[in-house]
Every structure is written in structure tokens, then in C-alpha cells.
């Protein structure tokens, strides 16, 4: 009996843990399959390329696709240089100390701030104080701030994993620090950095709370940085919540899921390439 005790416990624990994991995995698969099964039949080229009409009850989702892409692009264009620059500074140009600690603390805190706070902030600063109104500009800036910590962290990890020997080679060949960073460190860290950027794109596509109060929810095709626009996530939210059109809601959700799947696959591919390169 004494020898049986731990063995039974081991078995029970194994079964229990595995069951919990299986439940988690199946919940996820269920969500994805559920959305795809109802959404895929709605999808066709017209759904993607036609503008929504009648509040989204009919027509497609083209203007929201454009809005999402515009917002995401603007956010990345702002956040990527800032984030990568910060990561370069933290990894290559400093040896720790209070300044570094403050920068790290700031990034970590920023990462924990909920998106609705970003939304509130973007609304008061960009929409009202700076008078950008509900616009791609306000939404893009707000999103950029939100993505910044993710890009900093992933870039930092990518840069840190570049072997120190590469830097020594570059220095010993008579390169300056900046030449070493741009010619040796960044090219080697690029797949990792891009992985972080791609993940951020995924996050910004799925974001709702921060964009609805800064970019607004206009269904019109945006024409400039100052146009209000509605992202796909916001569109889905409005369609579903106000019961405007369930088929169109499912269709939009399916597109969102497909985009996220594609992004995850892409990051996997990039990460694998990155790991292969250094092992």
C-alpha cells in the first residue's frame, strides 16, 4: 500500500493535468472552428471588396479593412523605430544604472496598462486637446503607444540573442559602435525584431477599446489621416452587439481569425528561421 500511494497519485495527477490541458486546447479549437464554420460561407471576394451599406446590414467590409490597415500601418511606422531604438540603447549603449532602470520600469508599466486607459488618454489628448478629432491619426498614435512596450521587449530579446562574438569581430575589424549595430547586430536580430512587429500587428488588428474612442466608428471610406474610420474589430463589435447582421458579423469575425492565424504562422516561421540561424 505504501508503495502504491505515490504511484496512484502520480497517475491521478497526470490524468488530471492532461484533462485540464485538453479542455483548454479544445475550448480554443472550438472558438476558432465555431467562428470559421459560420463565417466562411459568408466570405467571398465581394464581401472583402465592397463597402458596407445600410449600417453594415448589407454590402461588404472594404472600408473597415482599409481603416484597419491604415491604423495599423501608422501605429507600426511610429512604434517600430521608437521601440527598436529603445532596445538598441538598452542592449548596446548602456551598462545598467538608474537611467536604464527607469526606462525598463516605464516600458514594463506601459505594458500592463489596459487598452481602455489608452483609449481614454488618446481621446482626451489627440481627439479633443490637439483637435485631431476621431481620426486615423488619433487612433494610430494611440495604438503606437500601446504597441511600444511589446516591440521594445521583443527587439531587446532578439538583440540580446545575437552572439557577443559577432560584436567582437566587428569591433576588431575597426568598426565603430554604430557600424557594428547597423551592419552586424541588427541584420542578425532582424527576424526576431520582425516577429515582434508582426505580433504587434496582430494585437492592433484585434484591438477595440483603444481605437473606438480615438478613431471613431465611421463607415465611410477614409480619405486622409484626419478621416474617422472603423476597424474590423469595432465593426464586428457593433454588428454583433446591435444585432445589425449576424451573417456579416460572422464573416468579419472569420476574417479577423484568419488574419490572426496567418500572423501566428508567420511568426512561427520567422522564429524558426531565427533559431536555426544560431544553433
Amino acid at each position: 500500500m505504501k508503495r502504491l500511494g505515490p504511484r496512484i497519485e502520480e497517475k491521478a495527477a497526470r490524468i488530471g493535468l492532461l484533462a485540464m490541458t485538453l479542455i483548454t486546447v479544445s475550448v480554443l479549437l472550438f472558438i476558432i472552428l465555431f467562428i470559421l464554420r459560420r463565417g466562411l460561407p459568408v466570405l467571398n471576394l465581394e464581401f472583402l471588396t465592397a463597402n458596407p451599406t445600410d449600417m453594415g446590414k448589407s454590402g461588404g467590409i472594404f472600408s473597415t479593412v482599409v481603416g484597419t490597415v491604415a491604423l495599423t500601418l501608422l501605429a507600426i511606422v511610429i512604434a517600430a523605430p521608437l521601440g527598436v531604438g529603445t532596445a538598441i540603447y538598452l542592449t548596446e549603449y548602456t551598462w545598467g544604472g538608474p537611467v536604464t532602470r527607469i526606462i525598463r520600469f516605464g516600458a514594463e508599466c506601459l505594458a500592463g496598462i489596459p487598452s481602455i486607459i489608452f483609449g481614454l488618454f488618446g481621446f482626451i489628448l489627440f481627439v479633443t486637446k490637439l483637435k485631431f478629432g476621431w481620426s486615423i491619426l488619433s487612433g494610430g498614435l494611440t495604438l503606437a503607444f500601446m504597441l511600444l512596450p511589446t516591440i521594445i521587449r521583443t527587439s531587446e530579446e532578439a538583440i540580446k540573442s545575437v552572439p557577443p562574438a559577432y560584436r567582437n569581430v566587428s569591433f576588431s575589424l575597426g568598426s565603430t559602435k554604430w557600424q557594428t549595430v547597423t551592419r552586424v547586430v541588427l541584420p542578425s536580430a532582424l527576424p526576431g525584431i520582425i516577429t515582434g512587429v508582426v505580433l504587434s500587428i496582430g494585437r492592433s488588428i484585434g484591438e477595440t477599446a483603444a481605437t473606438i474612442f480615438t478613431a471613431g466608428s465611421a463607415l465611410r471610406m477614409p480619405t486622409s489621416l484626419f478621416s474617422s474610420t472603423r476597424t474590423m474589430s469595432v465593426h464586428f463589435y457593433i454588428l454583433a452587439r446591435e444585432g445589425i447582421s449576424m451573417p456579416n458579423a460572422y464573416g468579419t469575425a472569420a476574417i479577423l481569425i484568419i488574419a490572426i492565424l496567418a500572423i501566428n504562422l508567420l511568426t512561427y516561421y520567422l522564429m524558426n528561421r531565427f533559431i536555426k540561424k544560431y544553433s
Binding site: P163, A165, Y166, N168, V169, S172, V184, S188, K277, Y278
Partner: peptide
């Protein structure tokens, strides 16, 4: 300088 372990850049 040539280092102990060869370090070709990738």
C-alpha cells in the same frame, strides 16, 4: 585579430 573559435558572420 583572429579569435580562438572561428566566427564567420551569418
Amino acid at each position: 585579430m583572429v579569435f580562438a573559435t572561428p566566427v564567420p558572420l551569418p
